[in-house]
Design a binder for these strands. Structure first.
Length: 419
RNA sequence: GUGGGUGUAGCUCAGUUGGUUAGAGUGCCUGGUUGUGGCCCAGGAGGUCGAGGGUUCGAGUCCCUUCACUCACCCCA
């Protein structure tokens, strides 16, 4: 029979790697708890309309990357390409703002985008997502980024670069957009094919183009920071000011724009050299109009998404500490001893001790080898001799010492093992 | 969607100008002790050489097609 493989861009995370994921998740939860961020769990499938309206029809994500299908109920559904829209949808749907105008939420889970896979990019990938809703104060922006840098630092990441920019608001961005479009229209011939297309769809993205000629052209273009309105300007200044107060190093990247339409004012990105071409570990920003756009009240918001897979790939394998909890292997010789071992093994597990045994009737030597491989702290040896006198040999695998223990007395055994 | 690279044992990889039975290391199993792990030694299992077609007396090796993986563009986390 031919093997069935996983779907392209969808991968298995094998037992060797899962402890790393668990450790990161544990740390993340701990830090979020201290910052008062609560978990929300949202569905993987949403109505397609949610993302069209939330992320923007003209974005690459919606235009060509979503897993969208017609459900049997004749309704278009989409596997979520990001979490923010869903979190906001839930926030509105359950009237969470009536209960508490301020909400700090996180969610962790898989996202789906049908892109060509490469290093740090999968079709199913995982994000750690945080949304702060109902607070417009620039100190919130600073706090959010500060926490993020702290979190990544705690996880052991080094040489992170926090880049920030302001994208303006509904009032000042359209005017700026026109300015840029006008400027570039005059120089259209110097732009690459993609950028000429962007000129009509999303001209601000041209700032991100890596093509040299485009960069040269755009270098003379107006920059959004020079055009944002007074309020946006003040907001941005306060953000940088409070980042400094918290000693969070950041650089202003006047050309950074983001690929999702909902961002307003503060936009940021954290990059690292360690990831290859897909160098963004985290991206985020403010989205003051999104809640309303999705049918909710006028509530402002800011959030970010950490690329979980990318984060994991940056963590060295070396700093993974091995589990030192007590761990016993029960080596049994003969049918009767095996029966005995079966009972003891399961009793120990219920008493909170990790216990393993072998059912294949292997030689003692082979069972010892297995105990060693599983890095067991102890091995309990039960054979005919032990059945006869009601004791078993308990071997300490570190120093090789052995002592007899009463196999009827599980309590005494547990005591020795847990030391 | 576009371009480059790579497909040989569970894993990491050798394999010469095309030549007989395709190798190594590691992992796995067994033995070296009648009931004792790590180190060492010996043996064993494990491969449709990604798939399909072609050239040839003969293909892992050359050619074509295709698929997968991978890196980059694009875009993003």
């Amino acid at each position: 029979m031919a093997k069935i493989t996983s779907v392209r861009g969808f991968r298995d995370i094998l037992p060797d790697e899962t402890p790393k994921w668990q450790r990161v998740e544990e740390k993340v939860r701990e830090i979020f708890f201290n910052f008062g961020i609560q978990e929300i769990r949202i569905p993987i499938l949403e109505k397609t309309e949610l993302f069209k309206r939330g992320i923007g029809e003209a974005t690459d994500i919606v235009e060509k990357e979503m897993y969208t299908f017609l459900d049997r109920g004749n309704e278009y559904l989409t596997m979520r390409p990001e979490a923010t829209a869903s979190v906001i949808r839930a926030y509105i749907e359950h009237n969470l703002y009536e209960k508490d105008p301020v909400a700090k939420l996180f969610t962790i889970g898989p996202m789906f985008r049908r892109e060509r896979p490469q290093k740090g990019r999968f079709r199913q990938f995982h994000q750690i997502n945080v949304e702060f809703l109902g607070q417009e104060d620039p100190r919130i922006d600073a706090e959010l980024m500060s926490m993020l840098m702290y979190l990544l630092g705690e996880l052991g990441l080094k040489e992170l670069k926090l880049e920030i920019n302001s994208l303006g608001c509904d009032i000042c961005r359209p005017a700026f957009r026109e300015k840029v479009t006008g400027f570039l229209k005059d120089r259209e011939g110097k732009l690459c094919e993609d950028c000429r297309r962007r000129l009509g769809t999303n001209p601000l993205r041209i700032f991100d183009c890596k093509n040299e000629s485009c960069q040269e052209t755009i270098s003379g273009a107006p920059v959004i920071l020079d055009f944002i309105c007074g309020e946006c300007k003040e907001h941005f200044e306060k953000v940088t000011e409070h980042l400094e107060i918290l000693s969070v190093p950041s650089v202003i990247n006047r050309r950074m724009v983001r690929g999702l339409d909902y961002y307003t004012r503060t936009a940021f990105e954290i990059t690292t050299q360690a990831l290859g071409a897909q160098n963004a570990v985290t991206g985020g920003g403010r989205y003051d109009g999104l809640v309303q756009m999705l049918g909710g009240p006028a509530v402002s918001g800011i959030g970010f998404a950490i690329g979980f897979d990318r984060l994991i790939s940056m963590l060295s394998d070396a700093d993974e500490e091995s589990d030192v909890r007590p761990n016993i292997f029960i080596a049994a010789l003969g049918d009767e001893a095996q029966g005995r071992a079966f009972f003891i093994c399961n009793t120990l597990r219920r008493a909170g001790i990790r216990a393993e045994m072998d059912f294949a009737g292997r030689s003692l030597k082979s069972q010892m080898k297995r105990a060693n491989k599983l890095s067991c702290s102890h091995t309990l040896i039960i054979g005919d001799k032990e059945i006869d006198d009601g004791t078993a040999q308990l071997r300490n695998m570190q120093d090789g010492t052995q002592e007899p223990v009463n196999i009827q007395d599980a309590g005494a055994l547990i005591q020795i093992v847990t030391g």
